[in-house]
Design a protein around this nucleic acid. Sequence first.
DNA 1: CGGCTACTTGAGTATTCTCAAATTGTGTGG
DNA 2: CCACACAATTTGAGAATACTCAAGTAGCCG
Lengths: 232, 232
Amino acid sequence: MNLALADCHRQAATPMPHTTWALDVEPFREHLALARRKLKAGDHLYRAGQPFNALYLVHEGLLKSCLLSSDGREQVTGFRMRGELLGVESIGLETYGCDVVALADTEVWCLPYYAMLGVCTGNPALQSGLTAAVASEVRRDHGWMLAIGTLAAERRVAAFLLNHAAHCGQSQFVLAMGRADIASFLAVQHETVTRALAGLARRGLIAVSRRQIRLLDANALRVWVEDGAAVH
Amino acid sequence: MNLALADCHRQAATPMPHTTWALDVEPFREHLALARRKLKAGDHLYRAGQPFNALYLVHEGLLKSCLLSSDGREQVTGFRMRGELLGVESIGLETYGCDVVALADTEVWCLPYYAMLGVCTGNPALQSGLTAAVASEVRRDHGWMLAIGTLAAERRVAAFLLNHAAHCGQSQFVLAMGRADIASFLAVQHETVTRALAGLARRGLIAVSRRQIRLLDANALRVWVEDGAAVH
DNA sequence: CGGCTACTTGAGTATTCTCAAATTGTGTGG
DNA sequence: CCACACAATTTGAGAATACTCAAGTAGCCG
């Protein structure tokens, strides 16, 4: 059963679209007490090196996951919003493999991993669903590899906005992440993100004011992204 | 139990290092007849759109997986060699989500997915191991996102070579993939790969002749890659 | 109202891309 | 076994994108 029904307190100001949940937690809820955890912008959900013991399902807010290499390089590997899973990258490790930081006020549901596995025993569909959820992370990452490998900076930013709009279910939204986070994720510099947004606005495809974004014509934007690739 | 023991016919010319298997197939072998499949360079293991029904464990050879977008952009999302799993990105889908092509003469073991799930029922450790294998794919992808997002072209190529050498367990090897495949994977142009290899050779870090590569000093190479990142 | 951080903008530079051509290696047929 | 066609790789030169550094602006928090 989808959890969207549980979400009956949404505010009129922000019409909540139907949420697609990465994982159906109801079967687990029957056996486990799912703790909630609230975070403020800047708080860490977990850090690389801490004992891995739980996955998290985002109920509200936005988080980023960051990978830090031994020599100090840093990479934002993804953003997660309502309905998405966190921590799957660390399954099979003893400690978390990256940092996850809230970018806005956030609430997550804790899914104690080993307890989950216990519930899965005797219910193959559950574990299989978990495996599928992890696999979909792989596909998501491959999708971004495609974007980063084949699109110029301005089109990457456009693809990012389109993706964000699709997740929000809205063409107008406020980016909780800063330019630097978007830049890291898209493998460009933060000034380049700024200029890309300005460029998209100049083309009449979007309206930008700081973190407030509005897609003026999402379809035209998508066509423009794909057109650039066709020029060969 | 590790399958490396089964590999007792290796040729003297190519000393086979201890193979780390992405998945322990012995428990499955007890219940399933694991078919083998041989491919020649250029053959497809599977194509996007074909019914998803099996994972594959590479026993010998090398393959690439490619993602093709609706508007014609193409991206190599990874290379897989002995011991590595293929098809995990398609778990949860009805059809495979990308193309996988052999880059050399290759042999894979077929792991019929739904039969595997059957075997996993009643053996939680097995399914949990499969989930962990998928999760490690996520980590691998994040590692490459880090490299692509934070390293200049020449250093990306160096990182690629170091990774390849580590997988082979040798500092001298023949790349089965062409410059274009490496280029797509690393998000640069194929001429850039050529120039990067020439540059690394000029620095005395490697020796290159077509696809024959030799790391003259793997440690120095690694230090050089990480040094470039430290300049900030 | 400071002081701070995030964002924007500009100018010059550097890396990488693009396009073209030359070279090398490979496989095939004579 | 050689000649030839083809594919992959290399190299060069100029152009373009994106980066770097620096300065200025704007919003936010205390």
